[in-house]
Nucleic acid binder design. Structure first.
Length: 474
RNA sequence: GGCGCCGUACCCAAGCGGUAAGGGAGAGGUCUGCAAAACCUUUAUGCACCGGUUCGAAUCCGGUCGGCGCCUCCA
């Protein structure tokens, strides 16, 4: 049936058709590395990971670019704030460069923990300053800019289509309803391309430019970097839903003003993770990081599974109860698949040519779900139904699960191959287990239960399965 | 003030005009010394509420109530 994606530009489900038949180009807005990513941020990266996995599953080659914002992103509204990096540096006594490096590494660690495939290109804003300057020069030559109060501004009134993505009707916007209006601006919605003046002094990350020593505005970096790596017209641009109104709207204005042509074909936006009835936000202080989850004993993949249970365009309610249910579900899948794997003698089909028609039909259902605007909850339902389907052999169940895991990214193959740890003779635990087995053999169940309780006190849970006694840490 | 989205069982959540997917939690059963696992059964005549359109509505239209987001920090 073909992949259908909801394009924010036009607000409709559209048949996906890439510019180049064989390679899909994606640009996704990356983190601003002044703090840890919170799990709401991470939800968006998981959604983008699913997107690229689905494209790969459907046979496309993917070129996925993500930026690291390490300069130019201000703390406050209206281009009057302080650079987030500089603020964090000032508060911690470190340099902005140290802050950037620290949180960039933390971000990579999160990505790895969540089994997110690392984009083909990860590029720092500070490595692309010249490209940004060149782009601003181009805009200047074409008459889209003006200089005021030391800063270079983009004049949105020169760009007739401004606000098309966000459906902004500028007449009805309340400029300054919430923020301080920058009096240097001709139009309150103009935005800064290059700063040389900030009311916060001591900016340490600065570069020479035709307009004086300074630093780039936030929006220009995404335009410059995406075009550098993907060309002046590419397939998909992703980001959080909160970027529609300002960031992406401004990116479009800059990019299309500079090239005079259409820039991005499909705009995909991930919805928010909601905590305590409001969106998770660093500025509001109500946020959790992956590390918080790990410290509470969750596996990062529990969170990944949790994200899969909701559609990327719907708000998802976070609660510990929901996360528990995701964890249990994930562990159940592993258990089920592992059991099938063992019963099938670890022999699974090599490819989908050798599987039954029933299994082929299930793959088709799975594909249909994902082609329907990346409907992961539906795809998960296909997995669950398949695992309970008596018409599918154990070996095929393993094969299909692993096939589906190419999208879900739950590391199933690794999980089912985890051997139960063999105990050695001199181990306290192993002695107790042996004694318990001995007691059971002698039908002295009272003694057996005493041993079981002792093991439990040591953090070991034993289970008697048809294949013998197994144990695990609890 | 403007714009957008949402309200489905105890919890999470699909569904987008044809008679309520899936998971978690709970309950009952088979099996097992007991647990556990596995398997089976079970939990919304109902989708915020009120009208309307239709042979047929959770799905479309209008209204009401409640919630969320955006309107230059935000994924």
């Amino acid at each position: 049936m073909g992949l259908k994606l909801f394009n924010t530009m036009g607000r409709e489900l559209q048949e996906f058709s890439p510019i180049n038949k064989n390679e899909v180009t994606i640009y996704a807005c990356g983190p601003t590395v002044y703090n840890f990513a919170h799990i709401g941020n991470l939800r968006t990266y998981i959604f983008e990971d699913i997107l690229r996995r689905v494209l790969t599953f459907l046979g496309y080659k993917v070129k996925h670019v993500i930026n690291i914002t390490d300069v130019g992103h201000l703390t406050d509204d209206g281009d009057c704030g302080e650079d987030k990096m500089e603020k964090s540096a000032r508060e911690t006594g470190k340099t902005a460069w140290e802050i950037a490096e620290y949180y960039t590494n933390a971000f990579f660690k999160d990505i790895e923990n969540l089994n997110i495939i690392k984009p083909e290109i990860v590029s720092k804003a500070t490595d692309n300053i010249q490209e940004m300057i060149d782009l601003i020069k181009k805009l200047e030559e074409k008459g889209f800019t003006y200089i005021s109060g030391g800063n270079v501004y983009f004049s949105i009134d020169k760009f007739p289509d401004y606000g098309k993505l966000a459906l902004l009707d500028r007449q009805k916007l309340h400029a300054g309803a919430r923020i301080e209006i920058d009096s240097n601006k001709k139009n309150p919605y103009d935005f800064v391309l290059w700063f040389t003046k900030s009311k916060f002094g001591n900016q340490t990350m600065t570069w020479d430019s035709p307009w004086g020593r300074g630093y780039p505005g936030w929006h220009i970096e995404c335009s410059a970097m995406s075009m550098k790596f993907l060309g002046e017209n590419f397939d998909i641009h992703c980001g959080g839903i909160d970027h529609i109104n300002v960031h992406h709207t401004n990116e479009i204005a800059q990019s299309e003003a500079a090239t005079g042509k259409k820039w991005v074909n499909y705009w995909l936006h991930g919805e928010f993770l909601v905590l305590n009835k409001s969106k998770m936000a660093k500025s509001a202080g109500n946020f959790l990081t992956l590390t918080d989850l790990i410290q509470k004993g969750y596996d990062p993949l529990d969170y990944r599974y949790f994200c899969l249970t909701g559609h990327y365009r719907s708000q998802l309610q976070f609660s510990w109860e929901s996360l528990d249910s995701a964890r249990n579900a994930r562990l159940n899948i592993i258990e089920k698949v592992k059991l099938c794997y063992e019963e099938a003698g670890k022999n699974i089909p090599e490819n989908n040519l050798t599987i039954s028609d029933n299994a082929k039909q299930i793959i088709s259902n799975f594909k249909d779900a994902l082609e329907d605007d990346l409907n992961c909850p539906k795809a998960l339902a296909v997995l669950w139904t398949m695992l309970k389907d008596a018409k599918i052999s154990q070996a095929e169940k393993v094969f299909l699960s692993l096939e589906f895991d190419k999208i879900f990214g739950l590391s199933l193959l690794k999980e089912i191959n985890k051997e139960s740890v063999k105990y050695s003779i001199d181990d306290e635990v192993s002695i107790l287990i042996k004694e318990r087995e001995e007691a059971r053999k002698n039908r002295d169940f009272k003694l057996a239960d005493v041993k079981r309780d002792k093991l439990k006190a040591l953090g070991i849970e034993v289970k008697d399965t048809p294949n013998g006694t197994t144990w695990k840490h609890i």
